[in-house]
Structure formats: C-alpha cells, structure tokens
C-alpha cells in the first residue's frame, strides 16, 4: 500500500509540476511576444515600413549599381583624391575608400607586376602622402601591355561583411548599398577580415570601420558619387538599374561585364569591362 500511495503522490506531483512549468513557458512566451512588439517591427508589420526619412527620396524606387571601364582609365587618380576630400578620409597613404591598381606585364614574366597609388615609389613621385600620381616606372623593361583598374567596395548582393557583423552596424539598404552605422560599430573588424576585396579599413581615430558608401549622401540627392563626378574619361559609370536609360543600365546592356572573385558568392554590384584574369 505504501508503495502504491507514494506512486499516486508522485503522479500527482508530476502533473502539478508540468502544469506549473507549462504556465511558466506561456509566461515566457508572453514576454517574448512583448519583446517582439517593439515599435520598429510593429511599424514594419503594419502595412510595410516606409522609406527612411530622406527628403525627396524613396529607396524603393532605386537599385544602384556601378560600372568600371578599365580601358578608359588613365590612372590620373582624381577619383582617389576626390573621394578623400568628399568623405574626409584620413590623408595618408594607407587608408582609401577607392583606389587604382596598375597591372604591368613585363616580357618574360609570368605574373603581372601590380602597384597602386600607395606604393612607396609612387608616393615618392608625388612627393606627398596627400597627393597621388603614378610614377613613370618600368622604362628600362620591355612592357607587353599595361592597364589601370579602379577598385572600390562592390556593394555585394550577399555581402560577407554584413553576415559577420555582430551588432548590426553594417547592413544592406533596400536600394542596394552596403552602409556602416558608426554609432553601432564596436570596431571588432570582423568585417574587415570577411571582405574578400579588401574594401574596408579601420579608422583608428574614430575606432570604427570605414568604407565606400557610393557617396550615399550624394546619390540620395540626385548627384553622382564624387569619384564618378570627377572622372575625366568616363571610366567610372554609376546609375540606377531601375532606370533603363541610366548610364549603368546602358553600360550593362552594351558590354560583356565581369565581376571580381565571383567564386566567393558575394555577387558584387561593381561591373568591370576590360580587365584580365589576373585582376581579382
């Protein structure tokens, strides 16, 4: 008997416990729901979120993309200096939101020689870390061919940098631009490591990561990015893919384009014409 009684009591105790535990779970669920019902998502749920409060701009109407015609680039580096001025990038030879590489194929060598405006020889030629120009190198070699390749953030469709950000400080906007929220960036630099293109760098003064924004403050006002604005040969092309008459739509319609490192799966939105297998 003692044994049976105790078995009943155990049963009853287990039932009560499970009931209580269930209530506790329900309570937790209520708390979770309350958490979920914060203003932001609530607004998002109610009939779709409006565009961010940018005057005269609706990000649903645009899908930005960038083109580079490397055949036209003359390596004048006006884009690099303009970017630094427009975006107040550190005036030294180590921090660039956009940069230009030169690929030189010397006769008898398998791999191209690559230099950029930050190369010590080129900095010596300009005489300053604040001005940039390509030095007249390789004069004593027989050069088979050589060309310049402007580079910048690819504003990928599947950006690895956004995936690794632990705080939601970097994100992809609805109009196709990858931005960094400097108030949420904690300076961990995971994104710098994650980017396969080396497009990001650490701003030591502000302790945040920095990169090209396609001059988001300009394109949302109907202007071109600073580098496109100053390019004297039309090597940089920018526009809205939703507008079939925009320069980028025509560029993509008229050319067979490449992207850099397609194998990484990032799906870049900077499209190149006139590059080479060695450009990565």
């Amino acid at each position: 008997m003692d044994d049976e009684t105790s078995a009943d009591e155990v049963q009853a105790g287990r039932r009560a416990f499970l009931t209580c535990f269930g209530s506790a779970l329900a309570g937790g669920a209520v708390a979770a729901t309350a958490t979920a019902l914060l203003p932001g998502p609530a607004r998002a749920a109610a009939g779709g979120a409006p565009s961010p409060a940018i005057p005269d701009y609706d990000w649903k109407q645009h899908q930005w993309a960038f083109g580079v015609d490397a055949r036209k680039c003359i390596g004048c580096l006006r884009c690099v200096e303009a970017c630094k001025a427009e975006n107040e990038v550190a005036l030294d030879a180590h921090h660039f939101r956009t940069w230009v590489e030169r690929y030189v194929y010397v006769e008898g060598e398998d791999a191209p020689r690559i230099d950029s405006q930050a190369d010590p020889v080129n900095i010596a030629a300009s005489g300053s870390e604040q001005h940039y120009r390509f030095a007249n190198r390789y004069q004593d070699q027989k050069v088979e061919r050589a060309f310049f390749v402007p580079k910048l953030c690819n504003h990928c469709t599947h950006p690895a940098c956004v995936q690794v950000c632990p705080t939601g400080a970097t994100f992809k906007t609805d109009d196709g631009v990858v931005l960094i929220d400097h108030t949420y960036c904690i300076g961990c630099q995971y994104c710098v490591q994650a980017c396969p293109y080396g497009a990001r760098f650490f701003n030591v003064e502000k302790k945040v990561t920095e990169k090209c924004t396609w001059c988001y403050h300009r394109i949302t006002k109907g202007l071109l990015p600073a580098c496109v604005e100053v390019c004297p040969t039309g090597a940089r092309i920018f526009g809205d893919r939703r507008d079939k008459q925009s320069p980028i739509s025509r560029f993509l319609a008229e050319n067979r384009v490449d992207v850099l490192k397609p194998e990484t799966g990032n799906a870049p939105n900077v499209f190149y014409v006139g590059i080479d297998k060695d450009v990565r």
């Binding site: 914060l38 998002a44 970097t170 992809k172 949420y184 949302t220 202007l223």
Partner: peptide, 19 residues
C-alpha cells in the same frame, strides 16, 4: 529592425552629409 537587422535611422543620418 525597422527595415532589417540594423538601426533604421542610420540610413537617413548617413544620407544627411553635405556634398
């Protein structure tokens, strides 16, 4: 979370810079 896993106001803040 207004538009995604980020601070929605950041977009307009970045767009406010003066060209």
């Amino acid at each position: 979370y207004e538009y995604g896993h980020y601070r929605g106001n950041a977009v307009a803040e970045i767009a406010r810079d003066k060209p």
